[in-house]
């Protein structure tokens, strides 16, 4: 075999394994974070019995889900019913592969990017895979043959389509400024010209709102709206399949947070780091940690908002998407065009 191909294969395999491990760990621990933070907000303790500070709780939960009986109701359409949790879980994981979590650095005599795939059209890949998620929800709701599930599926289809538009348009500004769809270029552009957050605040807010809707989190958790639709599209699921929906939700949250950081908050960029003149591996480590901290902030924001706000009504959510976010996003594009034209960014 050509040594170059072998090298790429090995490098990719190691990176995929590493990213997969990190992502799943973060997802598992997000369930703990969510419960501990919500407990903190709600003036109670939260799970603190399994391991020190309850740190082994996700492990216990995982074991529980694995050993739980999976009840498949007789009235479901089995092939689709079984496929749906995978359809939602896999895209949630794949999206993360194009996000750079740190700068390229010299390792074992090789130039290694801290990113699984440095594709030229990274933003498009993310949008494409994010859209795939809705199939999982729609099919789960439909194949369950349950009215509440079906309504949840219908709600989520409408919701995701409306908010994807706003999200796509809000990203256009970033693309225009950077002149590239490649996420590394976007980060590089921010390192050179300052974070997009500063010049594109409206776009950032639209992106953030749409990201909440895309991940079905409160105040936009209508597809599962527990108090209305019992559990929405996953009412009929149990055991590991049920937990796959939840893992997908958290994986989507991590990806959306990472994307918000990459597009608007300079990615792994730490302002003023180069003044310290650290050796390259140390600088890279600091930047990876900074990236993690920024993502952590957004994840906290998700949890914080969820336990503070009530839920929107279905039509109010659509109104917000189509009548507020979309026009503002279009105006935002005009504003960024102006900036680009004046060469201000």
């Amino acid at each position: 075999m050509d040594p170059d191909i072998a090298r790429v294969l090995v490098e990719s395999a190691v990176k995929i394994a590493l990213f997969f491990f990190i992502l799943l760990t973060v997802v598992a621990y997000m369930t703990l974070v969510e419960r501990r933070v919500s407990a903190w907000i709600q003036d109670r303790q939260g799970p603190n019995r399994v391991g020190p500070l309850g740190l082994l709780q996700p492990l216990a939960d995982g074991i529980k889900f694995l050993f739980k009986e999976e009840v498949t109701p007789p009235h479901v359409y089995r092939p689709v019913y079984l496929l749906a949790p995978m359809l939602i879980f896999v895209p949630a994981l794949v999206t993360f592969s194009v996000i750079p979590i740190g700068p390229a650095l010299e390792l074992f005599g090789q130039r290694v990017r801290l990113q699984i795939a440095d594709v030229d059209n990274g933003v498009l890949v993310i949008l494409a895979f994010a859209s795939m998620g809705v199939y999982g929800i729609a099919l789960a709701g439909w194949s369950s043959s349950n009215k509440y599930s079906l309504m949840g599926a219908l709600r989520s289809s409408a919701q995701l389509i409306s908010y994807e538009l706003a999200m796509g348009l809000s990203i256009v500004g970033v693309l225009m400024a950077a002149g590239s769809l490649r996420l590394n270029d976007i980060v590089q552009h921010q390192i050179e010209h300052g974070w997009n957050l500063i010049w594109q605040l409206p776009g950032f807010l639209i992106f953030l709102t749409a990201a909440f809707a895309e991940t079905n989190r409160l105040p936009f958790d209508l597809p599962e709206a527990e108090t209305e639709l019992v559990a929405g599209y996953h009412t009929e699921y149990s055991g590991m399949r049920f937990s796959m929906f939840y893992m997908a939700e958290y994986a989507n949250m991590v990806t959306a947070s990472a994307l918000a950081v990459t597009l608007y908050c300079g990615g792994y960029h730490v302002p003023g780091l180069h003044l310290l003149r650290l050796p390259e591996p140390a600088a890279a480590l600091v930047q990876v940690l900074a990236f993690g901290l920024k993502v952590g902030f957004f994840l906290f924001l998700y949890v914080w908002v969820r336990w503070t706000l009530p839920r929107f009504r279905y039509d109010q959510l659509m109104n917000l998407g189509w009548k507020v976010l979309l026009p503002v996003a279009v105006l935002h594009i005009l504003w960024v065009s102006f900036l680009v034209l004046m060469n201000w960014t």
Partner: peptide, 8 residues
Amino acid sequence: LGAATVFF
């Protein structure tokens, strides 16, 4: 209406 914290 989705505001769980008030409950606690």
